[in-house]
Amino acid sequence: MKILLIEDEPELRKSVKQYLYQEGFLVESANDYQSASEKVNEYEYDCILIDITLPKGSGLDIVKQLKQKNSKAGVIIISAKNSIDDKITGLDLGADDYLPKPFELAELNARIKALIRRRNFGGNTSIVVNEIIISTDERTVKVNNELVQLTTKEYDLLLFFISNKNRVVSKNSIAEHLLGDNSDQMDNHDFIYVHLRNLRKKLAEKGCEDYVQTIYGIGYNFKVS
């Protein structure tokens, strides 16, 4: 899987690259409009992450350029300008997703994976982790071939864990994932524990192993060997 990261802030470029690399992605980067434009012209990517404010140009023009050449790449806009206008313009121009800065790496990772899944229409949209099979088209979960009835939040939580499997995900990033833009309006994250407890119970009822490790103080790790 090849990803192009267009971002002018070197520190952010570095850490995003590192995180995605650990996820097994091949990550290339561009730090200004010109080099980004050249790269999207010359190479094919599975996913392109674009910052809107770039030196020497706008990321939105890159989105336009990709649309013109009928690129198959999924496009996620990463912007410091969390404005509805930018979001709408970006999505209208053909971007698939919009992630405002500052974002959680786990969230970015989950969004990239979801995007790549959606892009592979022909391929299999099921995610298989040992005895768990998630069909993302139907939003269903099977354990040992038995359907597990999950609530929306439990399903989102499981998918988020699996997208970031073998990773420590913080409670903050889970909250952000489950609640979206308004996560910072919640005073505490106790509710995550409630959903997680229910999820664990439902999975265990169908004979699923408990993969979720609690990392005290910070979050959880969905550990799959």
Partner: peptide, 26 residues
Amino acid sequence: QTPLAVIKANIGLLMQSPNLKQEEME
């Protein structure tokens, strides 16, 4: 927002480090 994104990204990375003590996690 961008410097904050850098901070958060680095926290996300550091969190993955296998040898963190509980205190450091906190």
